[in-house]
C-alpha cells in the first residue's frame, strides 16, 4: 500500500552503516582481485612497449589470418545455432509431443561437457583413426586439423546459447498473440516472422551476443581439433597461446587485449538487451 508505492528498506531491517561499508568493501575487493586487476593487467601488458608495438602485433599477418578464421567460425556457428535455437524454442514452447522433456535436456547437454571432451569427440569421429576417418581420407576430405573441425567444435560448444535465452521468453509470453494472428488469417510464416520473432528479439540478441562471445573465445575444444597450423587453423585465442609460449608476451597480450575488448562490448550489449527485455537478470 503506502509502503509499496515507495519501496525503501525500513530502518528495522537495515544493517548498521559500518556493516554495509564492510560488505561493500569485501565485494569490491573480491571482484577487484579476481576480475579487475587481471583485466587491467591485460591492457597494461599489451601497451607495455607503446602503442606502435601494439599496432604491429595486431597487424601481424599471422594475427590477421587468425582474426579472419575466428570471424568465419563465429559467423557460421552463430548463424547455425541462432536458426536452430529459435526453431527449437518455437517447437518446445508451442507444441506438445512425446519426448519433449528429453529434447530440452539434450539441448543443454553441451554446457555440461568439458571443452576438451567437445574437441575429443570430433577427433574420435573424424580423426585419422576415427569412425569416419578411413572413409574421409579415401575421399581426401580433411576435417580434423582443418577449418571444418574448428567450425564444428565451436558450433558444438556454443550450441545451447540462443535456445536457452529464447525458450523461457517464448514460454512466458504464451501464444495468445499468435492465436489472434491466426484468426486474422496470417499464415504460419507470417505469424512467426510478424508476431513471434519481434516478441523475442531482445532475448534473441542477448543469446546471439553470448553465443558470439563464446564462439570467438573458445579455446579448449578448438585447441584439440585445430592442430595449431599457423595461418591456417589458428584462431585468435590459440594465437594468444602460441605467442605466449614463444615468450612474445607483448604480442600475446596485444592480441588478448582485442579479445578483452570484445568481452567488454559483449557485457555492454548484454546490459542493454537485458534492460530492453524488461529487467531480467
Amino acid at each position: 500500500m503506502s509502503g509499496a508505492a515507495t519501496r525503501r528498506v525500513p530502518s528495522a531491517v537495515r544493517e548498521p552503516a559500518w556493516v554495509r561499508v564492510l560488505l561493500i568493501g569485501v565485494a569490491v575487493a573480491f571482484l577487484g582481485l579476481l576480475v579487475v586487476v587481471p583485466l587491467v593487467a591485460v591492457f597494461r601488458e599489451a601497451l607495455s612497449r607503446g602503442p606502435a608495438a601494439w599496432l604491429d602485433a595486431v597487424r601481424d599477418e599471422e594475427t590477421l589470418s587468425a582474426i579472419r578464421l575466428t570471424l568465419l567460425t563465429a559467423c557460421v556457428s552463430v548463424t547455425a545455432n541462432g536458426v536452430f535455437g529459435v526453431t527449437a524454442a518455437w517447437l518446445i514452447a508451442r507444441y506438445d509431443f512425446v519426448g519433449k522433456g528429453v529434447l530440452s535436456a539434450l539441448i543443454d547437454l553441451p554446457f555440461s561437457v568439458s571443452p576438451v571432451l567437445s574437441g575429443l569427440i570430433f577427433v574420435l569421429l573424424f580423426g585419422r583413426q576415427g569412425l569416419l576417418g578411413p572413409w574421409l581420407s579415401a575421399h581426401d576430405v580433411r576435417i580434423i586439423f582443418a577449418v571444418p573441425g574448428v567450425v564444428l567444435a565451436t558450433t558444438f560448444v556454443t550450441f545451447p546459447f540462443v535456445a536457452k535465452e529464447v525458450l523461457p521468453l517464448m514460454q512466458s509470453q504464451g501464444s495468445q498473440e499468435e492465436e489472434a494472428a491466426l484468426t486474422l488469417g496470417a499464415s504460419g510464416w507470417q505469424v512467426f516472422l510478424g508476431v513471434t520473432l519481434p516478441k523475442v528479439k531482445w532475448g534473441l540478441l542477448y543469446g546471439v551476443i553470448l553465443c558470439n562471445a563464446r564462439a570467438m573465445g573458445e579455446f579448449g575444444a578448438v585447441s584439440v581439433v585445430s592442430g595449431h597450423v599457423r595461418g591456417l587453423t589458428n584462431t585468435v585465442p590459440l594465437h594468444v597461446e602460441i605467442l605466449y609460449n614463444e615468450y612474445n608476451f607483448a604480442g600475446a597480450f596485444a592480441v588478448a587485449s582485442l579479445l578483452s575488448l570484445l568481452a567488454l562490448v559483449t557485457l555492454g550489449v548484454k546490459k542493454v538487451a537485458e534492460r530492453r527485455q524488461g529487467g531480467r537478470t
Binding site: 571482484l31 576480475v35 579487475v36 587481471p38 583485466l39 593487467a41 591485460v42 601488458e45 571443452p115 553470448l210 562471445a213 570467438m216 573465445g217 573458445e218 579455446f219 579448449g220 585468435v236 585465442p237 590459440l238 594468444v240 597461446e241 605466449y244 608476451f249 600475446a252 597480450f253 588478448a256 579479445l259 578483452s260 570484445l262 568481452a263 567488454l264 559483449t266 557485457l267 555492454g268 548484454k270 546490459k271
Partner: peptide, 20 residues
C-alpha cells in the same frame, strides 16, 4: 556488469592475465 566478465572473457585471455 563485471560479475559476468568470466562468462565473456575468452579463457586463454583469463589464463595469461591471471598468470601475469
Amino acid at each position: 556488469a563485471l560479475v559476468d566478465l568470466p562468462f565473456a572473457l575468452p579463457t586463454s585471455v583469463a589464463g595469461i592475465a591471471l598468470t601475469a
